[in-house]
Design a protein around this nucleic acid. Structure first.
Lengths: 109, 109
DNA sequence: CCAACATGTCCAAATACTTAAACATATCGC
DNA sequence: GCGATATGTTTAAGTATTTGGACATGTTGG
């Protein structure tokens, strides 16, 4: 008995695991400067911090801050090569995160 | 001649039209309270402001603020029925916005 | 080793966002 | 119309984010 009673998930419950990843992606890409950084990449292109900063209207320091947020969100990936740090779009992670939300939305009909 | 020279899109250029819509979706869903609101909806469910506020830990006023942002971003749609305003997930708009980014990411490989 | 360069980090000021109370508007039942 | 209810708006304070300069660290070439 009571099997037919489905408690509504409490608003204050933890955000589902698969949403935590998407959450950071959303926050990261909710900023216009960070969107511009993402759009700076041509297909397959890798850019170092100096290149990204020179395209930007912000200080190198501010760009570095945004790159950190994008990397931690899994929007970009990076690797140090010599003196430089190269960034590229983390295609797989982004696809997975977006697919999670798309899946939720499609089930919501 | 010069056809082979492809100017890099300036960082400060306008964000492409199809991105403006996604931009607001990202900003809207970059906030944990607004994510919780989105996750409050069962499939096909419609909730009014009072119901959403009662699920929330925030004041009704703050919830109203977040609902406005979610509606303006096209995450939720709403309709007034009598005294109440009902909200639901704007499935089509969300799908389209997410598909735009997914498409960009897939072309970025 | 050392000078030049690329990047990251720390910090304080500027800016933007969030919050909740008070108030305003609209709708309903009687 | 009137009181009760539901929601939106304004506002001011609190909080968080963003920014760029100064400094620290790591790397390379000579």
């Amino acid at each position: 008995m009571f099997n037919h009673i489905v408690m509504k998930r409490a608003y204050s419950d933890a955000i589902p695991d698969e949403w935590k990843s998407m959450s950071r992606v959303f926050s990261a890409l909710g900023d216009e400067h960070r969107q511009r950084i993402l759009l700076s990449f041509d297909p397959g292109e890798q850019l170092n911090v100096g290149q990204i900063a020179s395209l930007s209207t912000l200080s190198r320091s501010a760009v570095s801050h945004h790159l950190k947020i994008l990397r931690e969100a899994g929007v970009l990936a990076s690797e140090k090569r010599g003196k430089e740090v190269y960034f590229w779009i983390d295609r797989l992670h982004l696809e997975q995160a977006l697919a999670t939300v798309l899946d939720y939305v499609r089930r919501s009909a």
